[in-house]
């Protein structure tokens, strides 16, 4: 790893100042992607601004029946949080299946959502649950947040502080894990929300996480696993790599959608 300067700010404002002062600085929010990338010399931030220890950045509140999950909340903590388990068990289930125990105790929801890895689990939940991405500057609706592979609506120096989720009526997540990395080769999150049925697919899209309108329409008509059978899932725009060609991923979207609905 190239030399870098590590900072542990005490507040979001201090973090933002540090980020603003150093154009090559990066937010460190668990580092489960960033640190391996740095070790491989594929990233060389001048400064690392670690937001995990900022007071108030980690933890879950359910005030007013709305889940607010601090950006620095580790996956393991989301997975076992009583409020998440009560109001959005599918989200807890998703968090419990990310990576391995070491990853789940270091990686954070904010880090994952900010990175927007096309094979990460969380983006599918945020998108399907119609969650709100809360930053130090504004609130961003999920539909406006994900802009393609590793690309988001975040501006320079903008830091995610929380993810806000209105509990769905029901929701489910099913992941087909890459046999090597155990990232999602295909992950499907289905949710019946106040704004209708939403289905988000991660791992499969050449452009990152996306909503599947065909599945949404079918499940809006009948929220049952069988409803998925009639939906044609196109391989167009899906990833092909050494692990799975686009047509196989398309097939898996259907299988995982059925399983997600069954789990909901």
């Amino acid at each position: 790893m190239y030399a870098t300067t590590y900072h542990r700010p005490g507040s979001v404002a201090e973090a933002a100042t540090l980020i603003g002062a150093n154009p090559e600085a990066k937010v460190l929010a668990g580092g489960q992607t960033l640190l391996p990338t740095m070790k491989q010399h594929l990233a060389a931030p001048s400064d690392l601004v670690d937001i995990r220890r900022i007071p108030g950045m980690a933890g879950v509140s359910a005030a007013g029946g709305v889940l607010t999950i601090g950006a620095a909340t580790a996956h393991a903590d989301v997975a076992r949080n009583a409020d998440v388990l009560r109001h959005a068990p599918a989200l807890a289930c998703l968090a419990a299946g990310i990576g391995d125990p070491a990853v789940r105790h270091m990686g954070t929801i904010g880090g994952s959502v900010a990175n927007n890895d096309p094979a990460a689990d969380y983006p599918s939940a945020v998108l399907a649950l119609n969650a709100t991405v809360v930053t130090n500057r504004r609130e961003i609706a999920a539909d406006a947040y994900f802009k393609g592979m590793f690309t988001t609506a975040l501006e320079e120096g903008e830091i995610i502080t929380a993810i806000r989720v209105t509990p769905p009526k029901r929701a489910g997540y099913a992941k087909f894990a890459n046999p090597a990395s155990r990232y999602a080769l295909v992950g499907v999150f289905v949710a019946e929300t106040a704004s209708g049925v939403r289905v988000a697919v991660t791992g499969a899209g050449a452009n990152g996480v996306f909503r599947h309108k065909g599945l949404e329409a079918a499940l809006a008509a009948s929220f049952t696993p069988e409803a998925v059978d009639g939906v044609k899932i196109s391989a167009e725009g899906l990833l092909s790599d050494i692990h799975a060609a686009a047509d196989y991923r398309a097939h898996l979207i259907g299988v995982m959608a059925r399983r997600a609905v069954a789990a909901a």
Partner: peptide
Amino acid sequence: ALLEEVVYADDGQLLTGSYMDYAM
């Protein structure tokens, strides 16, 4: 039998150069 395979691209680049792609 189930998981492991070294894969090179046609041009000789190693595609399974880490545990992200080489399944143990």
